[in-house]
Each structure stands twice: as C-alpha cells, then as structure tokens.
C-alpha cells in the first residue's frame, strides 16, 4: 500500500501553559479533502502553521509521501505543503511582482506551474487586479490572488485557512469546484461548506 500523501503525528501545541491540542495524528490520502473544524480559540490556525513547519515542531513528526520533513528541509517542505493564510497581507508592489518573486524562488524555479491569472479569473477576479497595488485590493481579491498563486505552483498538499471567508457565494462555489481532487486540509467555520468539500472531518475541542 502506498504511504498517505501527508502524515502528521504527535502534533501538540500549548500557548502560555494552556494546552490547545496534544498528540494529534492525521493522515490525508492523495486527492482527499479533510475539513478541520472546531470553535474559535481551539488552535485550528496553529495546527495548520505547525504542519506548514512555520512554528517549532517540538516532538511533531511530518511525512510527505512517506518522506520525513527533516529530510526534505523546511523550504522544500513548504513549497510542497503550502499554507494559505486567512488574512492575506499587503506585499510591496503589485500581485504580479509577488508572482514573479515566487516563480523565482530557489525551490520553485523550473517547476511546471499553472497560470494563476487564469485560475483566479475562473473565480471572478478581473485580471487587471494583478497590476494594482495591494493597498487597492479588497480582502476577497487578495484571497483569490493568494490562493491562485499557491495552487498555480502545484503543491502536493494545500493547507487552507478559511480560504473563502471574504468571497460571495458564486465565487466560493467556483473556488470549491477548482479545488476538487486536490489534497487539502481545509479549516472552515461554515458547516455547510465543510459538508460540501470534505471527504472526512477532524474536530478540535476546547
């Protein structure tokens, strides 16, 4: 049997002595979408950050297709297991500048990529938005740009934190359609969205 696409074990996190989650194990098979649910403050975002290796791992173990994260190194791991944050920050310049910057990263260069402009256009984003300064873009526009950039790099796993929280129902439906067949750990507050997109659920309790 092939190894799962993503396997994470011993995921634990405390914030100021308060234990948020402890010893979580998680497996995601290729093409599977797992919805991560739970009330605010249970550490859903921190769980995503831990799997993205943006916070210290402590005892946590991470594997991609059976390969340990430590063997890949953090930048390669993150280029394959890609986190898209809920609030997309403003970068210097325009989204097109960021697109060029990302395409030129050492661990992204030369990798076959999709066209992010075409991806985002299918979600109702005017292609001219890519040439506006970030400060002139709405939350929904930034969200679609960040998601399109991540998806365009063909990551093995997407870690999504409320990726459609600023989108209207029409754009949300289009995004959900595009993400079918991707391997995703998807944080969502919306139970109906979780039911639509997820093959399985993981629930965090306070």
């Amino acid at each position: 049997m092939p190894p799962p696409r993503l396997r994470a074990a011993k995921l634990s996190r405390s914030v100021q002595e308060r234990r948020l989650f402890h010893g979580i194990e998680l497996q995601i098979d290729p093409g599977e979408t797992v919805a991560l649910r739970g009330p605010s403050g249970t550490g859903k975002t921190l769980l995503l950050r831990l799997i993205a290796w943006l916070d210290p791992l402590a005892d946590a173990e991470l594997f991609l297709d059976g390969l340990p994260a430590a063997e890949l190194g953090a930048p390669v791991w993150r280029s394959r297991v890609c986190l898209v944050a809920q609030d997309v920050p403003a970068h210097p310049g325009t989204p097109r500048d960021l697109m060029a910057l990302v395409a030129g990263l050492r661990h992204q260069r030369g990798r076959a990529a999709k066209d992010p402009l075409a991806l985002a256009e299918a979600w109702g984003l005017d292609p001219r938005a890519w040439d506006r300064p970030w400060s002139a873009l709405s939350g929904g526009e930034r969200q679609r740009i960040a998601l399109a950039l991540a998806l365009s790099r063909r990551p093995a796993v997407l870690l999504l934190d409320e990726p459609t929280s600023a989108l209207d129902p029409e754009a949300t439906a289009a995004v959900e359609r595009s993400l079918r067949d991707q391997t995703i750990l998807w944080v969502t507050h919306d139970p109906t969205q979780a039911a639509r997109v997820a093959d399985r659920f993981v629930e965090l309790h306070p």
Partner: peptide, 17 residues
C-alpha cells in the same frame, strides 16, 4: 509585517529569500 514575510516562507522561500 510578519504575515508578509511568512507568506513568502509558506511558498517555499528560504530565510534569505
């Protein structure tokens, strides 16, 4: 502007990138 820096790291940037 931590999110801006971490957004790049999340895309596979090295610390220097």
């Amino acid at each position: 502007q931590r999110p801006r820096v971490e957004a790049l790291l999340s895309m596979g940037a090295t610390w220097w990138e």
